[in-house]
Design a protein around this nucleic acid. Structure first.
Lengths: 144, 144
DNA sequence: CTTGGAATTGACGTTAACGTAAACGTCAAC
DNA sequence: GTTGACGTTTACGTTAACGTCAATTCCAAG
């Protein structure tokens, strides 16, 4: 391990600049979607004239947004969560509030996780039963 | 444990009949929503004249639908999943197909779970950092 | 008998999250 | 100089998932 990477726990990707089409391709969405997220205040890329220029930070942020979407959060909720950690952390009162909200959100996420685990368990159950049934009929569950 | 419950691994609730308003209250939704789900073919309650009568089975099914929604599935997806296990399981080919789809779905769910775990980890990280910061300032993170 | 509470069926309204199309600017390539 | 790839804004269209409201029925209570 080099000295450069030794001080860097998470491997950052080189700080590039991305076009809107580039990000759209990478994340499998359209440019329209990215502009829409900007309208909604979720990302604020630099501009060079009218053209949008996205930093690595913007890219990470976009990835975060999309993961939130995959988890079923609305854009409004995602915006709140993003804003949450953007606020000033100078005062003790603000830190307490941030802590409180974080905990609330974690509880929500863990409820979701319980739902998800239950869902997975049920489907695995079905898988097991069907496999069993197939074996009972002398068929290989993994065969074609 | 009594003989009655001993043979019953999962405690079934007594087979009652529910009104639409009753179910709506219980699940925190409106009757309109339940009727809408029926229009979409997600539930098919009995009828007594025009009035809908819901069985315990219908109730479980409704709960399942709502859990699916909490997980971010669309009604169309939920319908597919419900229909999936409704199909006939007599033929080996059908069993194989069911098994295949189950596995595909389980993979999807486990991807979601990975997303969710990552999300949770990040927020716990924030919680830890903020707690640390508060302690550094001589404030109790759990105090008021 | 009528009054009130719960149910029903339309039918139209609404919000979120984009899609789609029109009209235009910019720049490098041919 | 025009063609084509990429970018822009403005604006209207669309789908999902209900909300809302009107008009009606059914039934038990007073």
């Amino acid at each position: 391990m080099t000295a450069a990477t030794a001080s860097q726990a998470v491997p950052r990707d080189l700080p590039r600049i991305y076009s809107i089409a580039e990000l759209a391709r990478e994340f499998g969405i359209t440019a329209r979607t990215i502009r829409f997220y900007e309208d909604e205040g979720l990302i604020k890329p630099r501009r060079q004239g009218l053209t949008r220029l996205y930093s690595s930070h913007d890219r990470v942020r976009l990835g975060w947004i999309l993961r939130g979407k995959r988890l079923g959060f609305s854009l409004a909720e995602i915006k709140q969560l993003l804003d949450l950690y953007q606020v000033d952390r100078t005062g003790v009162q603000q830190l307490r509030e941030l802590l409180r909200r974080s905990r609330v959100h974690i509880e929500d996420l863990e409820r979701r996780r319980a739902d998800l685990d239950q869902h997975i368990a049920e489907f695995k159950d079905v898988e097991a039963q069907v496999s069993q049934e197939l074996r009972g009929r002398g068929a290989d569950p993994n065969g074609d």
